[in-house]
Design a protein around this nucleic acid. Sequence first.
DNA 1: TCACTGATCAGCGATATGGTAATATATCTG
DNA 2: CAGATATATTACCATATCGCTGATCAGTGA
Lengths: 111, 111
Amino acid sequence: MAEVQLTPELLAAVAERFKVLSEPTRLQILSTLRDGESTVSKLVDSTGLGQANVSKHLQILHVTGFVTRRREGLYVYYRLAGNEVFELCDIICDRLEEEIRARESLLGGEG
Amino acid sequence: MAEVQLTPELLAAVAERFKVLSEPTRLQILSTLRDGESTVSKLVDSTGLGQANVSKHLQILHVTGFVTRRREGLYVYYRLAGNEVFELCDIICDRLEEEIRARESLLGGEG
DNA sequence: TCACTGATCAGCGATATGGTAATATATCTG
DNA sequence: CAGATATATTACCATATCGCTGATCAGTGA
């Protein structure tokens, strides 16, 4: 009956990926990149974050395969590596919407 | 051209959900629950974690809607609220497999 | 009342995080 | 090479969180 148990290593690897997406700042960056590739400085401008901060987050997103980068002269262009991120977000958002609807039905129960 | 920008609040809410899934321990609990509902004490037994610890994680999973609970006599049975979690994990796992394959192709680059 | 399951709270030590300032690197220009 | 710009990296601080433990409370049933 029991399915294949996930190894601790795989669990940790999956958790690590989720952790990358568990930062609003990174989601914000990814969301911005949805409009198309962007340079670091553009992202700094559009997000209002510091340059080092943006670079660090981009580095994490790059290492974990969520974005790709290409250099062009002085600039480095980052772009989404795929749409999986937003598939993930959509699943989460669907849940959130359900919950919001459910809470509206209850109208004011907090516990 | 620009799509609707996600509000900071929505980003935070989505990030929070990802954060719930960014703990190997919680993924382990969810994975165990995939075999069917379980009581807290069974989970304590099968995971090797402490009772308070398991309860805490279950509480988080419950509040965020990943599991449901029902009381039956002395026992409280937890079960998965849906399969979305594993849809999410599958997407992540697919990525991981790709990366592992890619690294095997390179055979020994570490940086 | 007693026994059992589970929830909650407080506290500990270890680790990881985001942010930022400072500095290093890469690229182009002259 | 020196200067300017864009990006990456490092060092550091403050905070958050984790897992764990012990204690205690709450709910259920005998």
